[in-house]
């Protein structure tokens, strides 16, 4: 039999502090120190059980961005030549600038990815409410995530229907701009009316009336904070800030 204790969710603040520390390092550490931070972060992310989620976003978007950054900044930065490949001359200053931007971006993206890959949406929402965040924001977040999928499904159905009626995406740009409306108008009107009805339902349920009158607020006590994770996380964050501060004087 499942006891009520098993329904409790555990929130580990360590993930949050690892992300905070890495973000602080990305902004305040020198380029050499950022390399060390990136190595440590990659190690932590690789050992994480959700590593595929962390690296998927990185490989899909950030890696091509960094490579293009090297090409654009390397070729067009004003400075002394560093690498010559055929007719292309890469400038030293441009490559250093691209490295600095690439390092910062990688640290930011992997640290944010590390946090969201390890803490699920429901737990974040309930933790935020428990911490005193405005429940209106939390509800907007939960609902917008749910609505993206609903709108995409509806759009797919409208697109298929409009394609059957002759929507052709190979025509010129002005015709394609005109095609936006048969897709967007039914989609927007359907969900606008539905959102208004949802608003009435929320009002009727007393969403704003009392904190205890909705399920999200009543489940606050079910979140268990991992104190050990929080202590380690705070120490890590303080060390990061101390290093950043010390670098100002060295």
């Amino acid at each position: 039999m499942v006891t009520p204790e098993e329904f409790k969710k555990t929130y580990n603040p360590l993930y949050q502090y690892v992300a905070f520390s890495a973000i602080a390092a990305a902004f305040f550490f020198r380029i050499e120190a950022q390399g060390i931070i990136l190595f440590l972060l990659l190690l932590v992310a690789t050992l994480s059980k959700n590593r595929h989620r962390i690296f998927r976003g990185f490989l899909k978007f950030v890696l091509p961005l960094i490579l293009i950054g090297y090409i654009i900044n390397g070729l067009f930065f004003v400075g002394s030549p560093a690498v010559i490949i055929g007719h292309l001359t890469f400038k030293k200053e441009g490559l250093i600038f691209a490295t600095r931007v690439g390092l910062r971006l990688t640290i930011l993206v992997i640290s944010i990815g590390y946090f969201f890959a390890n803490v699920d949406n429901d737990t974040i929402s309930e933790y935020l409410i428990g911490k005193g965040a405005d429940r209106r924001f939390v509800y907007v977040y939960i609902l917008s995530v749910a609505m993206v999928q609903l709108l995409r499904d509806k759009l797919r159905r409208i697109y298929i229907a409009q394609s059957a009626r002759g929507l052709d995406t190979t025509r010129n740009i002005f015709v394609r701009i005109k095609y936006l409306f048969p897709l967007l108008v039914p989609l927007s009107l359907t969900y606008l009316a539905e959102s208004l009805d949802r608003g009435i339902a929320l009002k009727a349920a007393g969403f704003m009336a009392d904190k205890k009158r909705n399920e999200m607020a009543s489940s606050i006590s079910e979140i268990v904070i991992n104190n050990r994770g929080r202590t380690i996380g705070i120490i890590l964050f303080l060390i990061t800030l101390a290093i950043a501060f010390a670098q100002m004087f060295v």
């Binding site: 759009l155 897709l183 967007l184 989609l187």
Partner: peptide, 20 residues
């Protein structure tokens, strides 16, 4: 409470129109 679902709809619409 009346406008919260509209805001969520607007946020989702941003994403979906971009994809359209």
């Amino acid at each position: 409470s009346s406008t919260i679902p509209l805001i969520a709809f607007g946020a989702a619409l941003n994403i979906v129109v971009g994809q359209t």
